[in-house]
Design a protein around this nucleic acid. Structure first.
Lengths: 348, 348
DNA sequence: CCGTGTGATTGGAACGATCCAAAGGTAACC
DNA sequence: GGTTACCTTTGGATCGTTCCAATCACACGG
């Protein structure tokens, strides 16, 4: 149980009713714009509402009607611009549909995710949009939200067996196609020794992105040296630290497909430190097309995902589910688009 | 009135009570960990809670207790990394205190701000943290939230007369000192013709930042040419478009203090297009220290504000107000720190 | 004059929790 | 045995809204 704070005396329907000599029920009808009430009565009531500064108590209404007007949005990393834009898309679309967004940030911790879900669920959201933290397990999520709460999974799969009786919708990026495109682009530029840098194989997005890379390499008949797969946390700083491993083996790669923009930027940093110019001495690509990607030196070739649009899509997916709770689960694989900039020049 | 959606049958206290042969009141006591209940009873009830998968209905409890366990966070631009980090700080601190964050994004539109506030207030938040949209008026905000809702204003002042009976707390950046430091730094580097670029004078932060710049220039006995004040929207793209105005007059500046990092990065873009190398051919400083600032070419000298910490602070301010509703209004001016990087080299 | 239809209004019971005063049970003491 | 005290439990009212069936006022047709 948690701390809560008292709120000041509020104006209720009873106050309005008393104030203009009608019943509570009539005022309620006015509020909801019912055609039943007489024109003059309505005018009188509306005047009184204004006069007393009435504000609707949606929680009480939701209790009585057994409805909900909120949706929980749980993100693994709000501070990441990709998710921030995603969140603003979600909020926008939910707002248009009359819902309010309950925010929860987990900071990539599965434990915090549990706590956050547990706390949000008590506020009775109509549904949940979840971008799982790394290592988050389907079993735990199910335990936290129960089998009946509509949910949209974004960006990553949950670990463990998927409970098939809870029909969860999914909005995933076309990770594999994305890195395949990037890899094919580097190959077309003339690169042959291409590494895959950053991310971790225990997240579904990491595995998928690696798979796309491997697929393109194989299709081109190019071998992959074991030391060309370097893992890192999906953050710039950790990537910069991990980068040296790329050059420890022989033969050294001339290019790298990176897990996302953050690690690509980290790799750029590390390249500079080694005296290599990204783009001309070493080619690389990112994933996400965050704002920084266009501004880096050189500008980063990457995969554009339009996170704000994704946010709207996730909201739409949830809203559709609310309209039709029994529909079978949908999975949307959002397309990604290769944006070629100057970080992926041919080898010299 | 807005659309809402039905929620499935939920387990209530009555179900639990019936399920283990005690009264509703006893179950409620167990839930709240009251020391009154007998050990064995408690165990029996807790077992039953687990068995039936009970989830607490906080809305119902809040209704009865006339409390609230949520706080509304209304931001002018969530997609901006500065505010995204701020939001994650707010959410973190609120979560620790047992509150849930209701999110609202206004996209710099005062009209949307009105709508968002109106919708959020119906959910009965214990308080509001508001980063006002450009041109947002105190009068309108007051009308939307009423005089009794605790509120923390962040980052900008509201327009119009401040209603003194509503004691609103404030968390503002030390804008003036920030740009003064930046300007003094450029002067110390040897610059004499320094412009002030970006932002608008009808937002309080814009005026304050300009004032800091003007103050430093005056203190150094440097004159300011009229065409050295160029306004723009606080976005990168608009800044890049507006930048040419800096070079239309004579004498041209050799450096610029920028309204924030976004416009500084936009200015960099424009400089490149003119064939000028930022840093060496033209010095500039930003404001905010967003992640991109350290990564730009050259890295941007800017003012660090630690937005996540600011978020925590805003939350603390609101929580303090909830504990002490009658305390007089507090204003915190958060310090900013000059981070010198390579975009502010001496003129040649 | 009565029955009936229509339009407008209303009292009271919900929703799921908490609060409060009261009561039941047991043990201890005089 | 009766009084007191303590520990535990409980019924019913309540928070602010919506729902529902019932009621009321009034006009109309037969």
């Amino acid at each position: 149980m948690e701390s809560q704070t008292p709120v000041g005396r509020k104006i209720t329907l009873n106050d309005i009713a008393a104030g203009c000599g009608v019943s509570r029920a009539t005022v309620s009808l006015v509020l909801r714009g019912s055609p039943l009430v007489n024109k003059q009565t309505r005018a009188r009531v509306e005047e009184e509402l204004r006069r007393q500064g009435y504000v609707y108590n949606r929680a009480a209404a939701n209790l009585r009607r057994r409805t909900s007007s909120s949706v929980a949005l749980v993100l693994n990393e709000l501070a990441n611009p990709f998710f921030a834009e995603f969140a603003s898309g979600v909020d926008e679309a939910l707002g248009e549909a009359g819902f309010v967004t309950l925010l929860g940030n987990t900071g990539e911790s599965a434990a915090r995710e549990q706590a956050v879900l547990g706390s949000l669920i008590e506020h009775g959201p109509a549904g949940i949009i979840l971008a799982p933290a790394e290592g988050s397990e389907a079993h735990d999520v199910l335990a936290a939200v129960g089998p009946h709460t509509p949910m949209v999974l974004f960006n990553r799969e949950l670990g463990g067996a998927q409970p098939e009786f809870a029909h969860w919708d999914r909005l995933m990026l076309d990770n594999q196609r994305g890195t395949r495109l990037a890899t094919e682009h580097l190959i077309a530029q003339g690169h042959k020794r291409i590494a895959f840098f950053g991310g971790a194989d225990d997240a579904s997005s990491g595995r998928d992105r690696y798979a796309g890379y491997a697929q393109a390499m194989q299709a081109a008949g190019l071998a992959i040296a074991p030391h060309w797969r370097v893992e890192s946390k999906p953050s710039r700083m950790d990537a910069a630290r991990a980068a040296h491993a790329l050059f420890n083996g022989d033969p050294a790669p001339t290019a790298a497909v990176c897990y996302n923009d953050a690690v690509a930027l980290g790799l750029m940093l590390a390249l500079h430190q080694r005296g290599l110019r990204p783009g001309s001495d070493f080619a690389l690509t990112g994933f996400d097309d965050i704002a920084e990607a266009a501004m880096s030196t050189p500008p980063l070739t990457t995969l554009s995902t339009a996170p704000r649009t994704l946010g709207r899509q996730a909201a739409e997916l949830l809203l559709a589910r609310l309209r039709e709770p029994q529909a079978s689960a949908r999975t949307i694989i959002a397309p990604v688009e290769l944006v070629v900039r100057e970080s992926s020049r041919p080898p010299h």
